[in-house]
Design a protein around this nucleic acid. Structure first.
Lengths: 153, 153
DNA sequence: GGGCTATTGTTGAGCGCTCAACTAAATCGC
DNA sequence: GCGATTTAGTTGAGCGCTCAACAATAGCCC
């Protein structure tokens, strides 16, 4: 049986294209700034942030993968690089012999501390400075709605 | 002189993290679906879409780069792959001997036509089905605002 | 407790991207 | 017109990602 495609109406079409262009442009700009100023891509910055917020700056690899919305494979590759840079280290998990615990090193923390102000300033300049408080609230609700929708059905 | 960092307030912090997680999750889902069903990443799909909408399904490489928000280098690499797949072809530009014109082939058009319904359905299911009409309008305005802000200052 | 099954994390191949360097041709300025 | 500058597009190295396959261990169930 042939099912008719539910095409996007003109409003949806415009919204989708604007959303795509805007989110790509934003992430590219932030990624480039972070790469230039801190020598790491945004994905790696996020890993360091999550580790820095964890108790003792340490997290099981799988928890870190969940926290950063990453696949285990992606995180493994990233961890290998971050370890080679001296920003994290991996330890055996005492309670699960399969497990690994990623630990933020002092050098990693220092790098993060040095990178954070510039990056936060970038997020503010490129995103929040453009939006009204009402729009920030709307974007928050929209994003939470999307997230719920994407991580259940 | 030391300048204090304008950190994000809690609302902004939550908004930023929700936005990051939601947009990453959405794009990953759509990219995976497109790769599985059409054998191409979303970026390549966009290139084919823009070509399909152009007069005679042909565009100068630089115009195509602008239309897809891509660097010239990225588009060159992509074009090489799309050409190898037989979905586009490149011709010399008659009015500028440096120029190249990307042309969507019949095979490329057919591939796009086969991929489009599934992809559009995905965009609808994963994004628009979750949002109210008011939210769609908000997201549209927010995205346009971001885009203006990012592509001028 | 012994065999399934599920989970944890890693690995390698291959792809798409960025960045910098480059060629070639058009255009500007005098 | 001619040198200097700008623009169009490509290239290769290197990085980060996905995917599939894998080893090792944990948990389940009879």
């Amino acid at each position: 049986m042939v099912v008719m495609t539910r095409w996007l109406n003109p409003d949806e079409q415009r919204t989708w294209r604007a959303y795509l262009a805007a989110s790509r442009a934003l992430m590219e700009k932030l990624d480039r700034e972070l790469q230039r100023d801190a020598g790491m891509p945004h994905a790696y910055y996020e890993i360091l942030v999550r580790l820095s917020e964890a108790p003792d700056r340490r997290l099981r690899m799988s928890d870190l993968a969940d926290a950063t919305g990453s696949s285990r494979s992606r995180l493994s590759h990233a961890a290998a690089r971050l370890e080679a840079s001296g920003w994290i280290r991996r330890e055996d998990c005492p309670t699960d012999r399969r497990g690994q615990i990623a630990v933020l090193t002092d050098a990693g923390f220092a790098t993060l501390a040095a990178a954070a102000p510039g990056h936060v300033e970038g997020v503010r300049r490129h995103l929040f400075d453009a939006l009204s408080p009402a729009q920030v609230d709307q974007l928050h609700r929209i994003s939470e709605t999307m997230l719920d929708h994407l991580t259940e059905g």
